[in-house]
Simulated assay, not measured.
Amino acid sequence: MSPHCVWLVIVGGYEETKWKDVGGGKKVPMAKYITDTNRLIMIIELVYSEAGEWIVQSVLDGNDLTSKNYQEKYQLYSKTRTWWMDQLIEYPTEREMKLQRYIQSLHEDLQVAHESKVSLQEALVEANKQV
């Protein structure tokens, strides 16, 4: 599982829409909601390919979520995800380094602004004492 992978989690929904005649030639949609707990939650794994398109890797429903295979697959993904995050931390890209420097400069600017505010407040307090 790479950073180019996402899981789409779907909870609930409805299967089909039937049209109910309410008279006068009018029909209203009547949805049949999903109540089967095995189908209430689905996880769809999407991977962004080098060709620039999303590919469905796997689809898991409620039955799969409680299975041993799913638990093993999730643990494998979790370990792989941790590995990718470690790589990003150890070997940041140039863009990430620029962002980090920008964030640091914003922190420094904020600190200077805070110190100026404190010194201005102190000066006002001193001026009020002298009056």
Rank of each mutant, 00 (worst) to 15 (best):
W19I: 07
D21V: 09
V22Y: 02
V22H: 04
K27I: 06
V28H: 06
V28W: 06
V28M: 05
P29A: 05
A31Q: 10
A31T: 08
Y33M: 10
I34L: 03
T37M: 08
I41M: 02
M42A: 13
V47S: 05
V47P: 00
Y48N: 05
S49I: 04
E50F: 05
W54S: 01
I55W: 06
I55C: 11
S58Y: 04
V59P: 00
N63V: 07
N63H: 11
L65S: 00
S67L: 03
S67K: 01
K68C: 08
Y70F: 10
Q71A: 09
Q71N: 08
Q71G: 07
K73M: 10
S78D: 09
S78V: 10
S78K: 09
T80I: 14
R81G: 07
T82S: 14
W83Y: 14
W84V: 02
M85S: 13
M85V: 15
M85E: 15
I89R: 09
P92L: 02
P92F: 00
T93Q: 01
L99D: 07
R101V: 02
R101A: 06
R101H: 04
R101N: 03
Q104K: 09
Q104H: 07
D109K: 09
L110D: 11
L110F: 12
H114I: 14
E115S: 14
K117Q: 15
L124N: 15
L124K: 12
